[in-house]
Amino acid sequence: MQILVYDEAMVTNLAKKAMTTKGQKACLVIDHLVEALGNDPSSSLRRALILVDIDQYPGTTQTGIMERLHIHKSALNREIDWMFNYGCIMMADAEHDGRAKKIEICGYSRTGLKAALDYFDGEHENIKMFLQRFTQYIKQEKPTLRDAKIISSLNEKGRATKQDVIDTLYDGPSSTDNRAYNKLVEEGVIGDARD
């Protein structure tokens, strides 16, 4: 019964929505963005921002992204190359200019981003603001989705040991997770719990 399948999914999602705090939602948003970016938590928040922009403006060119997000051409080139190589986006020749490429989100990236957008009423501008404010909050040169997950997890837990937080992160080298956590401690984002 197909209709029952849809109903079950809807009820599950409704229950998930009703029972989650904003801190938990932030964790889920980051998880979906990691999915959308090749399951790579080392992806920067800026890369996620570019992916959101591409989804918001299907068929956009690099020039369009540069103008909207104020990102330097060489930095944007690197991010676009990465996303193309990981199958996040596809490119086609622009009709009006043979040198320009039209860019569109595709495949699993579209699915992952759509799931993340669900927490922002489907509004691209809201998730962009989330990513920009997160970037400003972390105050690092190039904060990653891993950094964002560490902060979101610790916020949700209130107080936790370093290992408890690292256990919520993604499969990958523990040395990388530890380094990211330690950097956030050094920079004063995370500190010892006060009594």
Binding site: A26, V29, D121, I127, F130, R133, F134, K162, V189, I190
Partner: peptide, 18 residues
């Protein structure tokens, strides 16, 4: 035990509207 010590994370969370 550790916690978030930098203020202002609420501004980040407030972007979540869904």
């Amino acid at each position: 035990m550790q916690e978030i010590s930098r203020k202002g994370f609420g501004n980040v969370l407030n972007c979540i509207t869904g």
